[in-house]
Amino acid sequence: MTMRQRIEIEVPLHCGGCKKKIMSICTTADGVCSVSFERGGKDKVVIKGEGVDAAGLTACLRKKVNKYAELISVAKDT
């Protein structure tokens, strides 16, 4: 049984194109149920799902969108 998880990845959102590309990459990853963006002190994408490879997803974002994507946290989603 896999645990439902909440993944936060810090990634600068420069423009609408970046946001669209990030959304496309995240929604096609295995196990992802929802993707949302949070803009506070730092821009981040929040991914919720089951069995998501957080490190792999972060590496993919680094490679395809922004070299500064950083995995902030992986936690159990309530």
Rank of each mutant, 00 (worst) to 15 (best):
C60V: 03
I72K: 15
R62E: 09
Y68Q: 15
V46P: 04
G16S: 07
N66L: 04
S34K: 10
I22W: 03
K44R: 15
L71W: 00
K48M: 15
T2G: 09
E10H: 15
K19D: 00
M23Y: 03
I47Y: 08
P12F: 07
I47H: 05
G40K: 14
E38D: 09
L61R: 06
A75G: 07
I72N: 06
R4D: 13
G49Q: 09
E70C: 12
A55L: 08
D30S: 12
A29K: 09
K20I: 00
A29H: 11
D77C: 11
K64A: 13
S34H: 05
A69F: 02
A75C: 06
L61K: 05
M3L: 05
D53P: 09
M3I: 14
I25S: 09
S73T: 13
K21M: 13
R62T: 13
L57H: 01
T2Y: 11
Y68T: 12
G31C: 03
E10P: 01
R4T: 14
T2C: 04
D77Y: 15
F37N: 01
Y68P: 02
I72F: 11
L71Q: 02
D30K: 13
R6V: 06
A75F: 06
A29M: 08
L57T: 02
M23S: 15
T78Q: 11
I22H: 08
G56P: 06
A54L: 10
G41C: 08
N66A: 10
T28Y: 03
G56K: 01
I7H: 00
I72G: 01
D53M: 09
D53W: 07
N66P: 01
D53V: 02
M23F: 10
I22G: 06
P12S: 10
R39G: 10
E38R: 10
R39F: 06
T2H: 05
G16M: 10
G49H: 12
E8R: 15
K42H: 10
A69V: 01
C33F: 07
Y68F: 12
F37C: 02
M1Y: 00
C15T: 03
L57R: 01
A55C: 06
V35T: 15
S36H: 05
V46K: 00
E50M: 06
K64M: 12
R6Q: 08
L71F: 01
D77E: 15
S36M: 13
N66T: 13
K64I: 02
I25F: 09
D30F: 08
K19L: 15
V32A: 09
A69Y: 00
I22M: 05
S24F: 07
C60R: 11
K63E: 12
C60N: 09
Q5C: 07
A55S: 13
I25T: 05
E38H: 07
V35R: 03
K63M: 06
I22Y: 06
